[in-house]
């Protein structure tokens, strides 16, 4: 080794040794992953939009949409299910799915019970005990203003917490979530829902899921409201068309919220965008979502705060409202 090489080795080694390394920052690493994913989603969304514009084939897209693989439920009068209903209390129930919890399935949700929901009312007012129900009778139709279960579904829920758990897992994709207090007032209920972090502790703010009990059907989800995401436009039940401007106020992580438009019967959005509001304080956001008109008459707007940690575990919190096309 020459003298110059020794000098280089010595100088670079000395310089490297005084570079402050600091401590590992796993949370920062997770945040950068979330940011990278959001950017990638935006790029994919932009590319998809550009493709749509180039093709100019809105009708073709609508046709493809109808034939997509994401139909989550359909009438299945032949389904006869016999399952044990978990023991729950009227006011509080906790459901924590572990790391092994499967990703949200795009296949029809497994009916938790197919019992005639008319007998489900006591679940909201008293402690239920484990029981097994079995029936072949199809339940009453899902009302038009319900977000979950989807229209035509044979799935019924005998308690608000049960419906909230299924809504969180399947509709929102929150594979790690905790269902908290259920406040029941006659045929209406509000249930707290919170995401679970890597440590097993709740993270983020509580979303409040609103539900209604329907005669012959059981509990259905009407929507959810996250205190950190207030949607001013569109309003629940509004008839919308593309391009849809979604406005509101948010205090989400890094101020970013994901905005999706979904049609009934599909978990994959027909349009997607994102808005930027406030991270440290509540600030207005606005996002424009472009989509091909679906064949279904109704759908949902989902405005959510993405999780900063790794995993396709759904959003941290979400505001979901019903719309018509």
């Amino acid at each position: 080794m020459s003298g110059v090489e020794r000098d280089l080795r010595d100088a670079l080694g000395a310089r490297a040794s005084v570079i402050p390394v600091g401590r590992a920052d796993e949370s920062g690493l997770s945040r950068r992953l979330a940011t990278a994913r959001r950017r990638r989603r935006s790029r994919v969304g932009g590319a998809a939009l550009a493709l749509l514009l180039v093709l100019g084939a809105v009708t073709v897209v609508a046709g493809a949409d109808d034939q997509g693989p994401n139909v989550v439920a359909g009438p299945d009068p032949s389904s006869t299910t016999s399952v044990a209903e978990p023991s729950t209390t009227a006011t509080t129930t906790t459901d924590t799915t572990g790391p092994e919890a499967p990703a949200p399935s795009l296949s029809p949700p497994a009916p938790t019970t197919a019992a005639p929901p008319a007998s489900a009312a006591p679940a909201a007012t008293g402690t239920t005990v484990p029981r097994t129900t079995s029936t072949t009778a199809p339940p009453a139709p899902v009302p038009d203003d319900a977000v979950w279960p989807p229209p035509g579904s044979a799935t019924t829920f005998t308690t608000p917490s049960q419906a909230t758990t299924d809504f969180a897992r399947r509709f929102l994709g929150m594979t790690k979530s905790q269902v908290g207090t259920a406040r029941v007032d006659g045929s209406n209920a509000n249930v707290d829902l919170r995401a679970i972090g890597e440590s097993g502790s709740p993270v983020g703010v509580v979303s409040v899921v609103s539900l209604r009990r329907v005669e012959g059907r059981g509990w259905v989800v009407l929507g959810s409201a996250a205190p950190s995401i207030v949607v001013d436009q569109p309003t629940t039940g509004a008839t919308v068309s593309s391009p849809l401007t979604v406005r509101g106020r948010t205090q989400a992580f890094e101020g970013t919220v994901d905005v999706e438009v979904r049609r009934d019967g599909a978990l994959t959005p027909i349009g997607r965008s994102f808005g930027t509001g406030g991270g440290a304080e509540v600030l207005p956001f606005e996002a424009t979502v472009t989509f091909a008109r679906p064949s279904t008459p109704r759908g949902t707007v989902v405005v959510s705060e993405p999780r900063a940690d790794f995993g396709d575990r759904g959003p941290l919190t979400a505001t979901v409202l019903r719309i018509a096309f």
Binding site: E5, D7, L8, R9, D10, A11, L12, G13, A14, R15, A16, S17, V18
Partner: peptide, 29 residues
Amino acid sequence: LMGDRRATVLAAVRRLPRRQQEVVVLRYW
């Protein structure tokens, strides 16, 4: 900590074209 000699070496490395800097750092550090 660096000393004059080391500072001179590093200054010389700093003036190298980009690719040469990278090769030198990977080789000698």
